[in-house]
């Protein structure tokens, strides 16, 4: 692609290339961690600034934080239920905020201006490792939530309402993390690819509506992931009668 005009180099498609960091015999994707640290740093900065001087009459960033808190509480409360939503609100909220800021960061920040030796910076959620990690955390959480709330009676859920459901419920335990991770990964990667391909083909104007669509998808995916995680936890702690 060296022969192409200058701006086309931004649009170089690099799919499945990673910046590898080696620690002993552990290999990690450096570009994912770099952007995730930026995302986490942005989140922590926002939170620290917003909670520095909190008052009963909220001002500035405190308003935004309280809005987010309220939004996450409503999400957790409607999906998990009044009884235990408090225990899971930080987890659901962290999932939502981390995925949301990752997705929007990937869509809004022109990462491609920063050149890496290999691979390119993008939303951490466009890497399958991140989404599978998040989905497995959700799986562990709902198992933990069910077992800690109901003890071994949690497994009644598998034969509820009839024992015929047993195989389906067992399969569900595998499909839940699979669908969670692949939905998020696929949507975000597809969005980045569509924008990249469009920028590659028509660098001006045309990618803009797709970028807006991407912002919309990003927000929706964060909401879907958090809502489903909360729903799975709520399903696990729900009392059957």
């Amino acid at each position: 692609m060296g022969s192409l005009p200058f701006f086309f180099t931004f649009a170089e498609l690099e799919v499945g290339q990673h910046l590898y960091w080696q620690f002993g015999n552990l290999r990690i994707h450096g570009q994912v961690f770099l952007t995730s640290w930026i995302v986490i740093g942005a989140l922590l900065a926002l939170v620290v600034v917003g909670t520095k001087k909190m008052e009963r009459d909220p001002q500035g960033v405190q308003n935004l934080l309280e809005f987010l808190w309220d939004y996450i509480r409503d999400l957790a409360r409607t999906q998990i239920g009044e009884k235990v939503y408090r225990d899971w609100m930080p987890f659901i909220g962290t999932l939502f905020l981390f995925i949301f800021v990752s997705n929007w960061g990937g869509a809004l920040v022109p990462w491609r201006l920063i050149h890496l030796p290999s691979g390119e910076l993008g939303a951490p959620t466009a890497d399958i490792n991140t989404t599978v990690a998040l989905a497995l955390l959700v799986s562990l959480s709902y198992f933990y939530a069910g077992l800690s709330n109901k003890g071994l009676r949690y497994f009644e859920y598998y034969v509820h309402p009839t024992p015929i459901m047993l195989p389906f419920k067992i399969v569900e335990d595998f499909t839940k993390p699979l669908s969670l991770s692949f939905r998020l990964f696929g949507n975000i990667l597809a969005d980045e690819l569509v924008v990249a391909v469009l920028v590659f083909l028509v660098p001006l104007v045309l990618p803009v509506p797709v970028m807006f669509l991407g912002l919309f998808t990003s927000a929706i995916q964060a909401l879907i992931f958090a809502t489903l995680a909360a729903y799975y936890i709520g399903e696990a702690v729900e009392e059957h009668h």
Binding site: I40, L65, L134
Partner: peptide, 28 residues
């Protein structure tokens, strides 16, 4: 391409959960 990114990211998110709980969810 699965590698050590997965468990490290999971640990990172769990840590973030605890940090956000202490800095954001509890005080707010």
């Amino acid at each position: 391409d699965f590698d050590a990114t997965l468990p490290l990211m999971a640990i990172q998110v769990v840590l973030l959960t605890f940090i956000l709980n202490a800095l954001f969810f509890k005080p707010v």
